[in-house]
Amino acid sequence: MAKNGKKVVIDRYKCAYCGACIAVCKFNANELIETFVVIDEEKCNVCMACVKTCPMGALAVVEE
């Protein structure tokens, strides 16, 4: 998917594995497995919903 060379990355040191980012992803591009958030880059549309929702500031968009 075209994302202008951007992608979402997670800072595992900040993540509190709360699942809020999963609730707002309409592309089903992320999953919380126990304490481990995985983002499926194929499905992710870099819509930023999860980045804006994360209570800990653990998600960010970076240039690929």
């Binding site: 699942g19 609730a23 309409k26 919903a49 804006k52 929702t53």
Partner: peptide, 20 residues
């Protein structure tokens, strides 16, 4: 809150940024 069962069954439960 992170429910996927709804979506898998065709009920759209994605929350907007004004709904969480």
């Amino acid at each position: 809150v992170e429910s996927r069962i709804g979506k898998l069954a065709g009920i759209d439960t994605t929350l907007k940024l004004s709904e969480i």
